[in-house]
Structures are given as structure tokens and as C-alpha cells.
Computed example of a mutant assay.
Amino acid sequence: MTARARVTVLTNPASGHGSAPHAAERAIRQFQKRGVDVVAIAGRDAAHARQLTEGALERGMDALVVVGGDGIISLALQVLARTETPLGIVPAGTGNDHAREFGIPTRDPEAAADVIVDGIVDTVDLGHIVGADGTRRWFGTVMAAGFDSLVTDRTNRMRWPHGRMRYNVAMVAELSQLRLLPFRLSFDGAEVSTDLTLAAFGNTRSYGGGMRICPNADPRDGLLDVTMVASASRTRLIRLFPTVFKGTHVHLDEVTTRRARTITVESPGITAYADGEYVCPLPVEVSAVPGALKILRPG
């Protein structure tokens, strides 16, 4: 009998353009094969999914397994942060940056289920955002503000085209209006006023499906890695873009990096996104919270 005898499986039906329910079926079959008792939940919407997750947590389980992408993981983190219940991931989203960080197989629900049964429980940090408007939000990967949050704002307003293409169209539109944005930041109390294209605050290394925006971030060091890009030149920003997938952009002149436990971020008219999800308008205080999450990963 496995150490994880009872798991709750939370599925986002829309993840990965609707492929999550199929991935969930495959993972659940594998759990049953391995003698694990499964309770499956799927919310009608985010609020309902959260309610079901909180109910499952009260009843007790050996792990909460999330089938989907970083969006549904973000929802689970709001419930699991600072609890003893570990998070298991069966990746079925478009970005899968959490899975990438912790070495969880991405196109193989059975292998991901095996990691949940046989893997180790790792204790890692989470990021925590407190907005001036009262918002409080946990995140696992990266909080972004600036050019990329403007692109996401625009993507969310667009009805066409669909999928990745919509994001690309939004990016081209924002590039045509590229400008430096005034930022006021404080890093553990040290204040900086500067003009930036974007700022990213990483608990882990990647966002946006493998862009290693904070290539040296470590979710066990109690700190956030901050990557700041300052370029008003479209050509240079477009050239910088491919280097982000390798993480080599941090060596370029337009890029500066810092590390801090708590950072305040202010820029008029800019919103914060974390784990790819809308959080709130700036200003915010964002901090690393050591050991806030238990996560299952390969041993």
C-alpha cells in the first residue's frame, strides 16, 4: 500500500484547450492501479473550484492533485499555502511552468501520477502579494509588471484570434506603443526610482511557458529574484526576446537583477500578474515566504 492512500484530484476542464479532463482520466486510472483512493472534483468556475478544494482539505487527504496548468495551480496554492497537505501536479496546461521547475513529466499523465505516489515531499517557498486595494495572493512562479502585463491585459480584452496567436498579436500591438514606464521600487527598504520596460519577481525561474526570466531564482532560498529590463528600442527588445528562453538575457546591458525578501512595486496604470493570472493594480508589496508549500516531486 502506498504512503499516499487518498488523494483529491482537482481538474480545470478548460486547461490545455480542453485536454485536462482526458489527462485526469488517465491519471485517475493510474492511481487506481496503484491502489490509491481518489476523490475527483471539478469546479464550474474558479470560486466553485476553490470552495470544493477547501471542503476536500477539511475532510483530509494525503495530497491535492491538480490537473491543468499554472492557472488552476494558482487557485490550489491559495488553499494549500502554509498547510501540511502536499500539492501533486498532473500537467495539462499551455505553460506548465510549475511542472517544469520541479521536474514533473509534462506529456505523460501516468508518469506524473507515479511521481505523486512514489515521489518525495519537498518544502519550498511561495511568493505572496499584498495589494494597496486589499488583495492578498500567493504565487509559485513569477509576478510580472510592465510590458508583459500590458500584453496580458490586451490579450484578455481580445476576442480573436484564439490560443497562442492572440498573445502574439497583442505583443505586436504593445510593441508598436513601446515606452519606458516610471517605476518606484524598494528592495528590503532600499528605494529605487527608475524607468523600466518590465520588472519580473521570481520565486522560480520561468514563466510564459519556459521563458527563464529569472534564471537564477531558487524556491528554497527565502528570496525573490528580480529581473528589470529597460529598453525603449523595439529592435533591441525583439532581439532580447529569444535570449529569455535560455536565460542569457541577464548578461545584456538593458537588464539588471536584484535579490530581496520583500519588495514594494509602484508604477501608475500598471497591473500585476502572477502565475499568468491577473492579481491587482500596482502598488503592491511582494515577498518570499520561506517553506510555505509542500510539493511532490521526483525523488
Rank of each mutant, 00 (worst) to 15 (best):
H249L: 05
A232P: 15
V279P: 03
H48M: 07
T8K: 01
M158Y: 07
P268L: 12
S267L: 04
A170F: 01
N203C: 04
T271L: 06
T243D: 12
R236M: 07
N96A: 04
H162V: 09
T141V: 08
S233H: 12
R205G: 09
V286T: 12
V286W: 00
R4P: 04
G68N: 07
V226F: 02
A113N: 11
F201I: 10
D108S: 13
N216R: 13
T83S: 14
T83P: 06
I116H: 01
L178C: 11
L282I: 03
A113S: 08
G60P: 06
I295V: 14
T264V: 04
R26A: 14
G103H: 08
G140Q: 06
V226A: 00
E110H: 05
D118E: 14
A173R: 14
A144K: 07
A144T: 15
A24V: 04
G93D: 02
A111M: 07
L252R: 15
L178R: 07
N168V: 11
R234L: 01
T85G: 05
R59H: 10
V38A: 11
R166F: 04
E285M: 09
K294I: 08
T227C: 15
E191T: 03
A230W: 00
L57P: 04
G35A: 10
V286P: 02
R164C: 01
R179N: 12
V79N: 08
R59T: 14
A113G: 10
A56M: 11
E101T: 10
I213M: 05
A111C: 04
A288I: 03
Y278Q: 15
V36E: 05
Q177R: 15
T155Y: 11
D125I: 09
Y273K: 04
V192P: 00
G71D: 11
T243E: 14
T204F: 03
A274M: 09
R34M: 15
